[in-house]
């Protein structure tokens, strides 16, 4: 938890509701990037991500947006709205859950290249493989990886966003990472497979 961050967000929300434009802008600029990226990762579509981000902030302009600070942070609440909107899009069939076909719409910056053979996941190819693996995860695992690993939400905020207990977030994250390793294993060249082979614990 980041108590200061939560207070700041809530203070901005209070000022926003009083008509303070600067507070609205501050909150938007503070949160739009993460919300947009989350929506982008979930939908695979820049247009859908933009629509979702817009709707999240329009929700804040509504009289009763439903945010209750006793249930969690504003950040978690906003991600929760974004998630519901993304799921709604998927249910409508506008966005396919399998995202590889939409990969060309993801406008990602150039990735750093690192020649360290022991850290191949920092190589361009390794990160590209990782990105593909993340987007190929089943939705429930992808969302927890995006929230916790990519957007660095803590478990409590992620739980609020996903509407599940913290323990569920933790277990899904554990499982998601195992799935990622499994997917990366399948993509790796044969000569590198040894490094990621399952190992049996002897103790």
């Amino acid at each position: 938890m980041e108590p200061m961050r939560q207070e700041a967000d809530e203070e901005l929300l209070i000022r926003l509701r009083r008509g303070d434009e600067a507070a609205f802008l501050a909150l938007y600029r503070k949160r739009q990037g993460a919300l947009y990226r989350f929506a982008l990762q979930m939908s695979g579509s820049a247009g859908t991500a933009e629509d979702i981000t817009q709707e999240v902030f329009l929700t804040l302009l509504r009289g009763e947006c439903g945010f209750n600070p006793e249930r969690g942070t504003l950040s978690g609440y906003l991600f929760g709205i974004a998630r519901k909107l993304a799921l709604r899009q998927m249910e409508r069939g506008r966005v396919d859950v399998a995202l590889d076909s939409d990969a060309e719409e993801l406008t990602l910056p150039e990735l750093a290249v690192n020649d360290d053979p022991l850290a191949d996941l920092t190589h361009r190819e390794g990160i590209e493989a990782l990105r593909r693996a993340v987007t190929a995860l089943p939705r429930r695992y992808r969302e927890v990886v995006v929230l916790c690993d990519l957007e660095e939400l803590d478990y409590a905020d992620a739980a609020a966003a996903l509407g599940c207990p913290i323990g569920t977030v933790r277990s899904r994250l554990h499982r998601a990472r195992a799935l990622l390793l499994e997917k990366l294993n399948k993509e790796r060249p044969k000569q590198a497979m040894g490094a990621l082979k399952p190992a049996r614990c002897e103790i």
């Binding site: 990037g33 996941l121 990160i127 690993d149 990472r177």
Partner: peptide, 21 residues
Amino acid sequence: RQRRLASGLRTMAGDMRSVGA
């Protein structure tokens, strides 16, 4: 392996940090 994966995810997150609406 888990730490390498976490490191890769951090790199991926850093690369995407500039992406926004």
